[in-house]
Amino acid sequence: MKFHRIFAVFLRYFYIYRRSGTRILETVYWPLLDLVLWGFVTLYLSRSAKGLPQFVAFLLGALILWDILFRSQQGISVSFLEDVWARNFLNIFVSPLTTWEYLLALMLSSLLKILIAGVVLTLMAWLLFSFNIFLIGISLLPFLILLVFLGWAIGLITTAIILRFGQQAEVLAWGIALLFQPVSAVFYPVSVLPPILQAVARFMPAAHVFEGMRSVISTGAFPKRELLVALALDVVYLAAALAFFFWMFRVARKKGLLARVGE
């Protein structure tokens, strides 16, 4: 593994973001829109329903964390698509870059996206709604990292499907994470789900993360069990996603799709 090769691919994404105002806008536009919308809804609800004073923290915290998951997934799949759209994919894959190095570069670029979106959202939540996510405390950090890993796992699966089925599958890059949202209990506790979906949610790392976040906010206690379950599930998801990606990569090479997706 050579760091200069990982850095080179990361640099290519960095140059795009440095130059393209629309890319930066795209990264922050939807999350900001969500933030403003949900921010006002939560203000209204917290004023009307006095028994639920933590509405703002619950919903805005969930919104910011969900966006981190979404951006980390997009950081993988949309960065991959950037190379496909620019017909630059072949240039990268005929270099000595290994598949692992490419994936690490995608993960680095995803961290860049998360950083941009995270900073803007945190700042705007504080400015508009006086919501300071850091007040939730350092306990939130491990959950945040677990969400990033889950986003990478979903991003890898999306990318593998695009490799196998071509650009007709690229719509997944924007929609696939949303499939997981209802059973991830982002804005409500798992207990409100019907029993069958509660069973599904138990196998969703994100559901444990969001349950953990609500526990941190409401009791201040660190939910060790939720964290460990989310970690174990994340390891399984990431390993399965990597195995799926490498399998699809091999299939794409065998069927000549790798060359076709890049032209």
């Binding site: 691919v9 140059y15 130059r19 620019a86 630059n88 994919f89 000595p96 032209e263």
Partner: peptide
């Protein structure tokens, strides 16, 4: 080894110099 094809391109939003910088790093 290297490769050039009429069917591939360099990243659109990078400048000529930046494109070459990326690939120079890629090849060390």
């Amino acid at each position: 080894v290297n490769f050039s094809s009429t069917y591939t391109d360099m990243p659109y939003s990078l400048t000529v110099q930046e494109s070459l910088r990326v690939f120079a790093r890629l090849y060390g």
